[in-house]
Each structure stands twice: as structure tokens, then as C-alpha cells.
Amino acid sequence: MDFILKIWRQQDSQAKGKFETYQVTGISPDCSFLEMLDILNNRLIDRFEKPICYDHDCREGICGSCGLYINGRPHGPDSAITTCQLHMRRFRDGDTIIVEPWRAKPFPVIKDLVVDRSAFDEIIMAGGYISVHTGSAPEANTIAVPKVKAEISMDAAACIGCGACVAACKNASAMLFVASKISQLAVLPQGIVEAKERVRKMVARMDELGFGNCTNTGACEAECPKGISLTHIARLNREYFAAKLL
């Protein structure tokens, strides 16, 4: 298959970026999107040009490193996958494909398609955990957790922290990301003790970092590679108001 690629190139965070056009030919439909970029990069190296920078590591949809904005959608045209799981068979031969980094103020561009997502770590740092010292935990089966709750918790915990939700949102809101952590811990008996503190601190930090408000458009849910549902945002809101009331 052959493609025309329009890719965002930007030397560093200060530089002005622009789209460059590249052609790739002879690509197998079973090639992954990132492998297609590898092939392009190897051709650039052959010409002694700088290869295109993008984040990636596990290449199996779980580390959350990769994240490209492809033809106007985070992680491209397929749903429920990450960029590294996208395959060229999802495109038509001869297609023009536009590739951009995540566009969101709290995620500044570092170079080409690489952005700085450390704001997510900051939010977790503010309280996205249960405070338990190593060695102080009770026997694991002391507290039973209803199966349905454990399942809801796991649904929320599936978040990989890729940032697609923020990139998809016109307000650059991080509500789905924050909600996934809040929800995971709020439905478990272990997480209840700190629930109020947690939601207050995480939301406050999210606001400080410049993420926008949630206006319920649902783009985040649609683009989330792990299918994390808006119901978690509803739970976050309930938790937040309950915490505020006290």
C-alpha cells in the first residue's frame, strides 16, 4: 500500500512547528502504524535526515506511551485501541494521513509528536492512591469486596494514562482520567477512608494544572482506548459534591 503522510515536525518546545509531507510506498496492510513510521524513519536515516520523534514503548496497547492524533482523532480511526495497535489495513491504499501530536495546553509539545504529559503524574501525586505503608496491610481476605464492585473498580482502573481523553476534549479536560482513579478507589472498602480528601486534592490539582472543565460532550469516552465510561465522571461528580458539603 502507498500513503501520503502529512506529519507535524517541531524541533523543540520553543520552535515553530509545521507539517511536512512524506510518501511511503510498498507498505503491508498487516504493518502497524508505528511500524510504518519505523519504515519511514529508516528511509529518512538513509537520507541522513532526522527521523520523526514519537513516544512508544510496549507496542501492545498497555503502557500508554504512544499517542498520535491521526486524521483528527486520538489514536486514529479505529475505536478501543491505542496508536500502536492500529494497523494499516484500516486505511485505503493511496490515502493521505495527517499525523499530529496531542493538542492540549497542559501537554506542551517537546519535539515533533512527543508531548509532555507529566501533569498526569502530578495529579496522581496529589492523592491518587490509598495510603498504606509497606507491611501494615491486613490479611487480604479479611475484607470481602462484592464482585460487582470489584468489577466496576477494575473497569475504571483499566486507564493507561495515555491522554487521549484530554486530546479529544475541546476543553482539554482531564475529567475522565481523574474519574478513573477516583472511581477505582471509591468503590472499594479499602479506598473509602480517604475518599473525600482524595477527590478534593486531585480535582484541585487538576484545575491548577490548567485542564479545562467537563461540558459532557463525551468525546473522551468515545476516544478512550480502554473504553472507560462517562459513568465514572458521574461518580467523580457525586464524590466531589459529597466531599464539598462536609
Binding site: 473498580s153 478507589l185 472499594l188 479499602q190
Partner: peptide, 23 residues
């Protein structure tokens, strides 16, 4: 090995559970 599971459960790791709510 047993303490690891205790620790992780206390941290909120959503391990699979049976209908009785146990691991």
C-alpha cells in the same frame, strides 16, 4: 508471597473476586 497479596489488596488493586467477595 502472601504478604504481597495483602499489600496489593490494601492498595486497592482490583483483583478478581468470587461471588462471595473473596479473592
Amino acid at each position: 508471597s502472601g504478604s504481597i497479596i495483602d499489600q496489593c489488596v490494601a492498595q486497592g488493586v482490583p483483583f478478581a473476586r468470587d461471588y462471595g467477595g473473596l479473592l
